[in-house]
């Protein structure tokens, strides 16, 4: 690694941390009740006016929500990066693979047939069902990955499983009451609203563990870029490695979907942006970079979702897609142009 590269990495990391800090401040600062930054600083770091309305808004609503957006956004990006490595395909992502559709299917089943009306994100049973749904789809993808070695084919299988899940969801909806449909729709658009400290705690623990494990397999991830044959000839246990990749990425995306609903395009767009910023695909650099980049991206998107049409809140998926999709397109075109 040359010196200029290391300097580049450091600069980008510092810039990303700064962006996250800025985004957090902005996010906590903005809302229907406005407060001065100095006051917010005092409330957060000096426990100023504990128990007041303003303090509660910050501590109970804005701060956990912003932090949740940061952790989940980061998790989603890393999950996307892992899946892109696994499929060796730039469009692989939790959303494309049908993991979100699986979650939605189970959530639909639960809302319509078991839980009745659903009223907020803190509903842990929903988190549980979404998680199970994601894992079911992952299980199928894993099962088929034993049968085929062709990655594009496996990607198509994943997409097809997603369609099946959507079809089953639609089938459930046929028997649903209007209020169930409404709550399901609002769930499936994704949102960071209603984040709580205990939920944030759970998410942070799961995500950190998964992140740590991802860093541990960063060496084989780099070698895997040369294709399965070469990777194996360099001493990698391919089967074990592929299992690790898909389990870690599904764990991450299942966690996100469970707590915030399906959020599209972050998983695809952010890893690409990170690679462009760092000018490398080294996993050891890109995993943390994707995490920070995704965190910053999601806090900003959440800010836009909250404020653009206040007091009406947009779905987070609406914002991420609106900003994520053009980024993906422009990056792809730029990459192609460079190649030819």
């Amino acid at each position: 690694m040359s010196k200029s590269k290391i300097i580049r990495y450091q600069l980008v990391f510092i810039a990303l941390l700064f962006l996250i800090a800025l985004a957090l401040v902005l996010n906590v600062n903005t809302g229907s009740v406005s407060m001065s930054p100095v006051r917010i600083f005092k409330i957060i770091f000096m426990r100023f006016e504990e128990g007041s309305v303003d303090s509660n808004i910050i501590w109970r609503i804005r701060l956990p929500r912003s932090l949740m957006a940061a952790v989940l956004g980061g998790a989603l990006s890393v999950s996307g990066f892992l899946l892109q490595t696994f499929f060796r395909n730039p469009i692989a992502g939790p959303f494309v693979l049908g993991i979100s559709s699986g979650a939605k299917m189970c959530v639909a089943f639960a809302t319509i047939f078991i839980l009745g009306s659903y009223g907020g994100m803190s509903a842990y049973p929903l988190v549980f069902f979404a998680f199970i749904g994601s894992l079911i789809v992952t299980g199928f993808v894993l099962m088929f990955s034993q049968k085929t070695k062709n990655m594009s084919m496996l990607l198509v299988i994943g997409i097809m499983i997603g369609y099946i899940c959507s079809a089953v969801t639609d089938f459930f909806i046929t028997f649903a009451k209007d209020n169930h449909i409404a709550s399901l729709t609002s769930w499936s658009m994704g949102s960071f609203s209603g984040a709580s400290w205990p939920a944030l705690g759970i998410v942070t623990v799961v995500v950190l563990v998964a992140l740590f494990c991802s860093v541990l397999i960063s060496k084989p991830m780099d070698a895997y870029q040369l294709g399965e044959g070469y990777a194996q000839s360099m001493g990698i246990n391919i089967k074990l490695f592929r299992w690790m990749l898909i389990i870690l990425s599904s764990l991450l995306s299942a966690t996100v979907t469970a707590f915030a609903g399906p959020i599209s395009f972050v998983g695809i767009a952010v890893p690409h942006v990170s690679k462009m910023l760092m000018k490398t695909s080294r996993s050891l650099v890109i995993i943390p970079a994707s995490f920070l980049c995704g965190a910053a991206f999601c806090i900003f998107c959440d800010l836009i979702a909250r404020t653009a049409f206040a007091p009406t809140e947009l779905a987070i998926g609406t914002v991420t897609a609106l900003f994520g999709a053009p980024v993906v397109i422009s990056l792809m075109i730029r990459q192609r142009r460079k190649k030819h």
Binding site: L216, A223, Q225, G227, K275
Partner: peptide, 24 residues
């Protein structure tokens, strides 16, 4: 093979895989 954003030197260095530490 189609490695992303890798220089030829980095591709060659992959040959050191069995000898390098856990972070390559």
């Amino acid at each position: 093979i189609e490695p992303e954003l890798m220089t030829c030197g980095q591709v060659v260095a992959m040959g050191r895989y069995p000898y390098t530490n856990n972070f390559g």
